[in-house]
Write a protein that binds this DNA or RNA. Structure first.
Length: 280
DNA sequence: TTAAATGTTTAAAT
DNA sequence: CATTTAAACATTTA
């Protein structure tokens, strides 16, 4: 599930807990989910937790790092006695017994335990030294963060493709961190039709789009991400951005501006929601 | 039964 | 070469 705001939410929560803790033991249940050697970080202390695009990074002493990509269904759950912090794809594992059938890696810490679960197994954990992390194929090719990029650079990078604007802003090598939910909502906010070629937009429109991308991402972070799972009582775990979706998952529902029923199409193989009345 | 799912990669087709 | 589309990864849910 996670997009930038969901990962940011996990980061903010784990930042308060992990620094200072030592990794005592690691149990790997899903070999396919893990890259690198677990022994590297056993006995090491967590220095900090950070984020790059949709990747969560745990930094250890000794110039070592562990990077998580949740893809569609990854989740991290920290358990310490009665205390539980859950982030990522919301499932009953948020509140159920752990480890679960979807648990791939278990980190026994000097205080508490961290579970990496991944139902569809698209996600990954990479353990490596900081030099290797810098060289990592995925991380090294990422575009700028939406909150760091200047208006000028955004216009230059995003506004030069013949591809549909929605595809371009979701291209992690052009701009990092924007996924399907926030791309749909940002385009609605900017009143831009998702299928329009990005190079046909004016720099004014592109500047507004950057502003709106930051707006919806910030709102996502403010609400603790989206937790589109109403089949499980999350007991306060998980975020609430889903209650503020402009377009995502709102096919046939009225546009929040002009009440026109929203349309759903497919663009680049992904569900695309928009208002044909006000997005041109 | 079929389609779709908050992501990314790859091969094949245009 | 740029772009687009489909399929693949694996599982669950509507």
């Amino acid at each position: 599930m996670p997009e930038l705001p969901e990962i940011e939410t996990v980061k903010l929560q784990l930042q308060k807990i992990l620094p200072g803790l030592i990794v005592e033991d690691i149990e790997v249940r899903g070999t396919r989910s893990l890259f690198g050697k677990t022994e590297l970080i056993v006995g090491k202390k967590v220095i900090d937790v950070s984020r790059r695009a949709k990747v969560l990074i745990v930094e250890f002493d000794g110039e070592l790092s562990m990077a998580f990509h949740f893809k569609m269904t990854g989740q991290l759950i920290y358990v310490d006695g009665d205390k539980r912090i859950a982030g990522g794809h919301p499932t009953s594992d948020f509140v159920g017994a752990l480890p679960s059938t979807h648990t791939k890696v278990i980190f026994k810490l000097s205080k508490g335990t961290l579970f990496f679960n991944d139902l569809r197994m698209f996600g990954w954990v990479k353990i490596m030294n900081n030099a290797q992390l810098k060289m990592d194929k995925f991380l090294a090719n990422l575009g700028p963060e939406p909150f760091d990029i200047s208006e000028t650079e955004f216009v230059a990078r995003v506004g030069k493709s013949k591809r549909p604007i929605k595809i371009v802003i979701m291209d992690q090598e052009v701009l990092a961190g924007v996924g399907n939910i926030y791309a749909n909502d940002a385009l609605w906010e900017a009143r831009i039709y998702p299928g329009v070629a990005s190079n046909s937009l004016t720099s004014e429109q592109l500047k507004i789009l950057l502003e709106k991308i930051k707006l919806v991402l910030n709102e996502g972070i403010k609400y603790g991400g989206a937790t589109a799972a109403n089949y499980v009582n999350l007991d306060g775990l998980g975020g609430h951005y889903q209650e503020h979706f402009r377009t995502y998952n709102r096919e046939g529902k009225p546009c929040l501006r002009d009440k026109t029923p929203l349309i759903k199409t497919t663009l680049g193989g992904r569900g695309t929601f928009f208002c044909e009345q006000c997005q041109i």
